[in-house]
């Protein structure tokens, strides 16, 4: 860009052609866009023609501005931002004049403010309606209910220990609660003798099957990746890793606690049941987790 004078005629003519060409491209593309839409729509063509229609206009306007509009630099004084002493004094006088009329009825003004404050306080209470008191729901799952609930698969069918195979994960649920957000449970089979239960959980497995909460103790993602040769469960969200054969203790990544374990047994028909709720609240930690479990 030079000094804002019109360029010589040859250049002038070329620039005019570019602008005209760009606008023509834009018109054609817009019409084609309309045709594509009427014929039934096609995302790639829609994007292309809409892009060309807008881009043509953009190029035309850009060249127009570049070649046929003044580009000379102008110098302007910056305004003084702060007000002058006189202006400040005049404002202060006006404000204080008003303020004095308020001060004369000081008690009334204070009462008025008090009314406003009380209403503001009262208006805070409806926030309480947004959700129930937290607590029990965080610490318990449907497994913790009255009965010894069966474990069922995603279709609701009960599971026998023999249905499981080594190196396979099965996601199970409490019977009647398939899909419950806090209850997904991992069932794994191990070979005899290789499983080392945590102290106090010796009787929690049945026929070489162990059950853990599927929810990561870091931020509650489903721990869905099973590294079979290492017997590690990996969370795909933040890569916390749990040792399946050692009480699902965390061995890598940001998780600080083992996956809660579910005490298992079989009922008289040979189906897997939970004898109690998980060993700890499932999912991520919270302030009073230790008190609610």
């Amino acid at each position: 860009m030079s000094d804002g004078r019109e360029p010589p005629t040859g250049e002038h003519r070329r620039a005019e052609l570019v602008v005209a060409g760009a606008f023509v491209v834009s018109i054609v593309a817009a019409l084609l866009l309309a045709v594509v839409y009427v014929v039934g729509g096609q995302p790639q063509l829609e994007g292309t023609f809409l892009g060309l229609a807008l881009g043509g206009m953009g190029v035309g306007v850009a060249f127009w501005a570049r070649c046929f509009m003044p580009s000379d630099e102008v110098t302007e004084e910056r305004p003084e931002l702060a007000s002058s002493e006189d202006e400040v004094a005049a404002f202060t006088a006006s404000f204080e004049a008003g303020e004095q009329t308020l001060a004369r009825r000081g008690l009334l003004a204070k009462l008025g403010l008090g009314a406003l404050g009380a209403l503001g306080l009262a208006a805070v209470f409806p926030i309480r309606s947004l959700g129930p008191r937290p607590g029990a729901g965080l610490a318990t799952t449907p497994f913790g209910g009255a009965g010894r609930l069966r474990l069922v698969d995603g279709e609701g069918h009960p599971i026998r220990p023999g249905d499981l195979a080594r190196n396979q994960l099965l996601t199970a649920w409490p019977e009647g609660h398939v899909g419950a957000a806090d209850a997904p449970t991992l069932l794994l089979q191990f070979d005899p003798g290789e499983f080392v239960p945590l102290p106090g959980r010796e009787g929690w497995t049945v026929e070489n099957v162990v059950a853990y909460s599927k929810l990561c103790t870091h931020t509650g993602c489903p721990v869905g990746l099973y590294q079979t040769e290492l017997d590690l469960l990996l969370c795909p969200c933040h890569q916390s890793t749990f040792d399946v054969l050692h009480g699902a203790e965390p061995v890598f990544g940001p998780a600080a606690r083992p996956l809660p374990q579910l005490p298992l047994d079989v009922d008289d028909q040979g189906f897997l049941i939970a004898t109690a709720d998980f060993s700890a609240p499932v999912g991520g930690g919270y302030w009073d987790r230790g008190r609610s479990s």
């Binding site: 994007g47 292309t48 809409l50 229609a53 807008l54 881009g55």
Partner: peptide
């Protein structure tokens, strides 16, 4: 031009 590029990306 911004809209043109975003439209092309969108399509």
């Amino acid at each position: 031009l911004t809209t043109a590029i975003l439209s092309a990306l969108g399509g």
